[in-house]
């Protein structure tokens, strides 16, 4: 039986080597492509002919878009609307990867359970925040780390803490998503193995497998919730970091 970690194994589907660098098309790439395709269908069908009275697809896309826009309005303010497409893209890509990875099929793979992927997305947010911050405020952006009305000694102390916390943001952002996805899938797989091992108890087959199976059903519902919530948290934190860069305190 496959171990609980085997579901995270990256398998090369099509080896690509560019100038000595390994850029192989893997199952991770495949599922990112599937997520991209799903999001593309959702968006292109939903906005094919935008109408004042929306149809079902358009209403669904509008719902998600409005959700992101409201999140930006609340956390960033009117300036945040410009970043709605970026936050929307991050949110829906993470959401699609999270949900597609939950398909109970042996070939399913969750790209967001890999820290390489989540760190890539987190670095995108981090770099965007830095660019926006320095573009809007120049070197004044460093005042983000300086506490208001503090003397030099305390100010320096807080400055160091603030810089460290700012620099650790992409890592906490990446690790939060990766850890949630990984833990959920490990848990599902562990209880899945329980179903098999308890269900194949020789004297009374199947009966004892029911308990871990029902746990797995409940866990699946929980994992769907976590998939949505973590995508939301990722987008929410991205918009909060953007707020720091746009509206210096």
């Amino acid at each position: 039986m496959a171990g609980p970690m085997e579901q995270f194994a990256v398998k090369v589907l099509h080896p690509i080597n560019a100038g000595g660098y390994d850029l192989s098309f893997t199952n991770s790439s495949l599922w990112m492509a599937i997520a991209l395709a799903a999001v593309s269908i959702f968006l292109f069908v939903g906005t094919a002919r935008p109408q004042l009275v929306p149809g079902r697809w358009q209403a669904a896309v509008e719902y998600v878009y409005d959700f992101v826009r409201r999140m930006l309005d609340e956390n960033v303010g009117p300036e945040g609307r410009r970043f709605a497409p970026l936050i929307f893209a991050i949110f829906i890509f993470v959401l699609a990867c999270n949900l597609l990875g939950l398909i109970p099929w042996v070939g399913a793979f969750t790209p967001t359970s890999h820290i390489s992927v989540t760190l890539g997305l987190a670095m995108l947010v981090f770099i965007t925040v830095c660019i926006v911050g320095f573009a809007r405020h120049g070197l004044h952006f460093f005042s983000l780390f300086w506490p208001k009305d503090a003397n030099i000694a305390l100010g320096l102390f807080v400055f160091i803490i603030e810089v460290l916390s700012f620099l650790s943001r992409p890592f906490t952002l990446a690790i939060r998503l990766f850890a949630n996805m990984t833990a959920g899938h490990v848990l599902l797989k562990v209880f899945g193995t329980f179903v098999v091992s308890l269900g194949s108890f020789g004297a009374l087959p199947y009966v004892f497998g029911i308990l871990p199976l029902s746990v797995n059903v409940a866990l699946s519902a929980l994992e769907v919730l976590i998939a949505v919530v973590q995508a939301y948290v990722f987008a929410l934190l991205a918009s909060l970091y953007l707020n720091d860069a746009i509206n210096l305190h």
Partner: peptide
């Protein structure tokens, strides 16, 4: 590296070829 590169490719496609042509219209 392979994941990061493919992520960059797919996310760029998503942002520039899917989200930007559709969302502002909506």
């Amino acid at each position: 590296l392979p994941q990061l590169v493919w992520l960059a490719i797919f996310f760029a496609v998503l942002y520039f070829a899917v989200v930007l042509p559709t969302l502002p219209k909506l």
